[in-house]
Design a protein around this nucleic acid. Structure first.
Lengths: 110, 110
DNA sequence: CATCTATACATCGTTTATCTATGTATCGTA
DNA sequence: TACGATACATAGATAAACGATGTATAGATG
């Protein structure tokens, strides 16, 4: 089943930030991991991925630094303290939102 | 807590169609009921509400008819058979989407 | 009686998240 | 050597929801 792309809006940022919770990653890696973890359900395009990372950097929620592995330049991202606080808030927001929608949908089944 | 409006995108249509599952309603009524059922969390503006209803009508997922109560004209909406099939599909879609996001967010907590 | 709020419909223009398309460049493989 | 995967980036298109605005009636409040 394919998910309506409009549903994805608003959850993309939290999914990406969550990837950075335990270790630094580069953009392409984050996208591939989300794709794997979701069994191919969520697949971000580059046109979505990189602008979000740049925006998070401008907002000081992540910091970027260049690394090199196997002769390949990679731009690693790291959550800032502000980023971690924002992530916690966004998780609470997601939880409230999803349980509320599920409840409203469930209520109809009376 | 206020919900990021971007999260709402994509779930608005299903919430509105769900209201029509058990009885016909007029637009304003649907919006107010959703607001009450969500404890004020979801509040649709008219600029959101009516264009969606018109779109659903064009797509033959709902049918509209005018009624009058207490000297007040009301436009009632009714789910078509196609609308009911679409609703079932959208419910499955929401379920898959929300459980997947929750799983990915939960996984980070390892 | 005048004014305000809630009800009830509607539409136009704006905002913005994501996508599509395009570009650069390197690595491994067939 | 040609292709696909990796890895970055951005410009323009698309489309959902919003803000603002408009019309009109009912009921409450002063």
């Amino acid at each position: 089943m394919k998910i309506n792309k409009e549903l994805m809006k608003g959850s993309t940022v939290i999914l990406m930030m969550k990837q950075l919770e335990h270790r630094d990653m580069y953009g392409y890696e984050m996208a591939k991991r989300i794709e794997q973890q979701s069994d191919g359900l969520f697949a971000f395009k580059e046109g979505t991925l990189y602008p979000i990372l740049h925006m998070l950097e401008v907002e000081r929620l992540v910091e970027a630094y260049w690394g090199e592995e196997n002769g390949r330049k990679r731009k690693y991202y790291k959550l800032t303290d502000a980023g971690r606080r924002t992530l916690v808030e966004k998780e609470r927001e997601w939880s409230l939102f999803s349980t509320t929608v599920s409840r409203l949908i469930g209520e109809g089944r009376a």
